[in-house]
Design a protein around this nucleic acid. Structure first.
Lengths: 212, 212
DNA sequence: GTCTATAGATTGATAGAC
DNA sequence: GTCTATCAATCTATAGAC
């Protein structure tokens, strides 16, 4: 199990470099050099640079989304069992906790999280759409659950507030790499501690009063 | 006043294209074509592509930061006058409201906001540092004021929560252009309405209880 | 200051031998 | 599947005429 096959080596190298340098500035030459494979191997295995990043994203995002979706469904089931509204904190936790935990699961996962954090603001339509299409169903699932949780709030307010939570989460993940102004202490909180900090914050924001 | 000078035309065109297509994918050829000036004019007036984006950013960010800084100082002065803690909602408003209002002030300003929203996640160190150095003093000023406002909270918690607000704000500004999942109604709220929505959310999150 | 022309380097992609 | 060699296009930057 020492040496992975060429395809996986390319995916790992691309993930790392796309995260570190960005999609456009990273050349196929840099990727194949990092992966220690031949330049032509990229086009042989993937067909194009665009198809490569598509696989880089899908490889990790599909399992992660499946986990988050499962967690959201559990919150919904639990609420129905109790015949209560799903607590908004549980809804947020189902989305946020797996995301931050996933980031700690390895070097590749960490690079990947940086990568998708940038995919949201990516100007290139093709790159951004790859991410959008994979995240939209999950985002809709979370929205519908949040709507059940806070039925007294207008739908557009719920949607904006969920966007605020997404923004806070993605910005946080980026901060953990390269921060505008890092927290005073040297050591950063672990995934579990940071999850709590952000979930508390987002839940308070979600639950705050709204006068129309 | 019909025709601006070459330098300004280049800045306007660069702002627009860097926002729409991104920094790296935008070529100097595309910029000079959009500005209807000669290709060589960029290097004559700015010296390099990097120096160009530096001026694109500084041209609008310096006045905007001056305004936000003034608003923060006013909140601080008002609190000292009343011998009270500065309300966290006022602190957040001093930062957020000018930002969203600025975005409505014209086509260029709108493109610019998209551009700086992406600058935070920009992998290129040179581009990101241009933005970082200009925003850091302001961010520190806001942090110190928030610390006066919420003295019972640990400094690192205040810092994280401010980052959450920054993340929510930048994500929101990006959503106003290209959203993962746009709000149900066709029309978007104006700067004033959206400011209130985000300030209410962020203030609730900032004020929420924290058990160490 | 503005232009043409081009240098010099790098890119994504491919053809074809092995 | 993997390699070398290369094409064709694009890029930033600059030299030099006007």
């Amino acid at each position: 199990m020492g040496k992975k096959d060429t395809k996986e080596r390319i995916l790992d190298a691309a993930e790392l470099l796309f995260a570190r340098e960005g999609y456009h500035p990273t050349s196929l030459r840099a990727i194949t050099k990092e992966a220690d494979v031949n330049l032509a191997a990229v086009n042989y295995h993937f067909g194009s640079k665009e198809a490569l990043i598509k696989e880089v994203i899908a490889r990790r995002l599909l399992p992660l989304n499946a986990l988050r979706s499962k967690r959201l469904q559990e919150v919904k089931d639990e609420a129905q069992r109790k015949k209560q509204k799903p607590p908004i904190k549980d809804v947020l936790r189902a989305f946020i906790e797996p995301t931050l935990k996933f980031r700690e699961s390895g070097r590749g996962a960490r690079a990947f999280v940086t990568l998708v954090g940038r995919a949201i603001t990516e100007p290139d339509d093709t790159v951004r759409n790859i991410f959008m299409e994979l995240i939209q169903p999950l985002f809709r699932q979370m929205f519908e659950l949040a709507d059940e949780s806070l039925p007294h709030l207008p739908k557009d307010i719920i949607l904006w507030r969920l966007h605020f939570a997404i923004g806070a989460l993605t910005h946080t993940m980026h901060c953990m790499d390269k921060c505008i102004m890092p927290p005073p202490g040297v050591e950063q909180p672990g995934a579990q501690a940071l999850s709590s900090i952000i979930i508390d914050y987002a839940a308070a924001g979600m639950e705050s009063a709204h006068e129309s």
